[in-house]
Simulated assay, not measured.
Amino acid sequence: MEGPRLIRHLTRAIIFSVSVNLLYYFLLPILTGLFLTHFYVPDITDAYEEVNYLQNEVAFGVIIRPDFETNILFHLLVGIGIYGLLFTAIRLFKKFKSSKVG
């Protein structure tokens, strides 16, 4: 690949990766929070049983979520890889389609 094409594809891959990460880490929690807030019904009589169930009956007692800051490089590389796979698949599909027609 030539230098400018490589830089263009790398730039697009980074933009794709950042946009997917922004969607996953910012937009998705906001939407799920809005959904949960809309349908939340407070019930003081069963509050203790719910907390007791969450702490003792749910596997490991808590949900462990990865931090955005610690995994930024990993997510960036995965996004670049996904973009590369999509770009290669589209290029191969166009090549296959043009060879079938002609």
Score class of each variant (00 low, 15 high):
Met1Ser: 04
Met1Trp: 03
Met1His: 08
Glu2Trp: 04
Glu2Asp: 13
Pro4Arg: 14
Pro4Ile: 11
Ile7Cys: 08
Ile7Phe: 13
Arg8Tyr: 01
Leu10Gly: 13
Thr11Met: 07
Thr11Ala: 12
Thr11Gly: 10
Thr11Pro: 14
Arg12Cys: 11
Arg12Pro: 06
Arg12Glu: 15
Ala13Thr: 09
Ala13Trp: 14
Ile14Gly: 09
Ile14Ser: 13
Ile14Pro: 15
Ile15Tyr: 14
Ile15Asp: 11
Phe16Glu: 09
Phe16Asn: 07
Ser17Ile: 06
Val18Met: 15
Ser19Gly: 08
Leu22His: 04
Leu22Met: 07
Tyr24Asp: 04
Tyr24Thr: 01
Tyr25Ala: 02
Phe26Val: 14
Phe26Asn: 09
Phe26Lys: 13
Phe26Ala: 08
Phe26Leu: 15
Leu28Met: 12
Ile30Pro: 03
Ile30Leu: 06
Leu31Glu: 06
Thr32His: 05
Thr32Lys: 02
Phe35Pro: 07
Thr37Cys: 09
Thr37Trp: 13
Thr37Ala: 12
Phe39Cys: 01
Tyr40Ile: 00
Val41Glu: 11
Val41Ser: 06
Pro42Trp: 01
Pro42Gly: 00
Ile44Arg: 02
Asp46Leu: 05
Ala47Gly: 03
Tyr48Cys: 05
Glu49Trp: 10
Glu49Tyr: 04
Glu49Asp: 15
Val51Lys: 14
Tyr53Leu: 01
Leu54Trp: 05
Gln55Trp: 13
Asn56Trp: 07
Asn56Phe: 04
Asn56Val: 00
Glu57Asp: 12
Val58Ser: 06
Val58Arg: 11
Ala59Asn: 13
Phe60Thr: 08
Phe60Met: 11
Phe60Ser: 14
Gly61Asp: 11
Val62Phe: 09
Val62Ile: 09
Ile63Trp: 06
Ile63Arg: 00
Ile64His: 10
Ile64Gln: 14
Ile64Phe: 10
Ile64Asn: 14
Pro66Gln: 12
Phe68Arg: 10
Phe68Ile: 08
Glu69Cys: 01
Glu69Asn: 02
Asn71Ser: 02
Ile72Ala: 00
Ile72Pro: 09
Ile72Tyr: 05
Ile72Arg: 05
Leu73Trp: 11
Leu73Ser: 05
Phe74Ala: 02
Phe74Pro: 01
Phe74Trp: 04
Phe74Gln: 01
His75Gly: 06
Leu76Asn: 05
Leu76Tyr: 04
Leu77Trp: 12
Leu77Pro: 01
Leu77His: 10
Leu77Cys: 08
Val78Ser: 09
Gly79Arg: 02
Ile80Asp: 05
Gly81Ala: 13
Gly81Ile: 08
Ile82Pro: 13
Ile82Phe: 12
Tyr83Gly: 01
Tyr83Gln: 14
Tyr83Thr: 04
Tyr83His: 14
Gly84Gln: 10
Leu85Gly: 11
Leu85Gln: 07
Leu86Thr: 03
Leu86Phe: 08
Phe87Asp: 15
Thr88Tyr: 15
Ala89Gln: 06
Ala89Trp: 08
Arg91Lys: 13
Arg91Val: 12
Arg91Gln: 11
Arg91Trp: 15
Leu92Ile: 03
Leu92Met: 04
Leu92Ala: 02
Phe93Leu: 10
Phe93Trp: 15
Phe93Asn: 08
Phe93Met: 13
Phe93Thr: 06
Phe93Gly: 03
Lys94Thr: 07
Lys95Thr: 03
Phe96Pro: 10
Phe96Thr: 07
Phe96Asp: 15
Phe96Val: 10
Phe96Gln: 13
Lys97Asp: 14
Ser98Arg: 15
Ser98Cys: 11
Ser99Tyr: 05
Val101Ala: 04
Gly102Val: 07
